[in-house]
Amino acid sequence: MNSTKVAENSIQAAQDSIIEDFELLEDWTEKYKYIIELGQVSPGLPEALKTPDIKIKGCQSNVWLHTELKDGKIVFSGDSDAMITKGLINLLINVLSDREPREILEGDLYFIDRIGMKQHLSPTRANGLASMIKQMKIYALAYKTKLENAN
């Protein structure tokens, strides 16, 4: 990126848009209602894909994260039995999905802090969210290595 202007479709732009949305929400009840809506509109995963090997450890609810590579980009999809968790996954997917592995690896995720989620989540839940992000980055690294070896 040569310009300081936020590039369209960048991780930064996606995060800024989320931050803007959250600024309109008055209190935590409203914020969570919005996250629940995000969970409800998310397609989730078909039951057949919810296998133990794609389950993320360290969450209070069951969380599954699925990945596939399409035209050199990682497409994430995820699901959870808790709707708020599913909404949070959807937020992460909005920011990180459909991007090249390198972009995901280099991405600085500041939106969680800026929407107040970092301070708000209890340590166990914050760990769950951190586990999700970590897992997404691990996938990115794995795909990056795989792509480099293929070339």
Binding site: Y32, I36, Q60, I84
Partner: peptide, 13 residues
């Protein structure tokens, strides 16, 4: 309703 969702919404209140 997952207990975690209920606990979170109650906490927000």
């Amino acid at each position: 309703v997952h207990p975690l969702d209920l606990g979170t919404m109650l906490n927000a209140a």
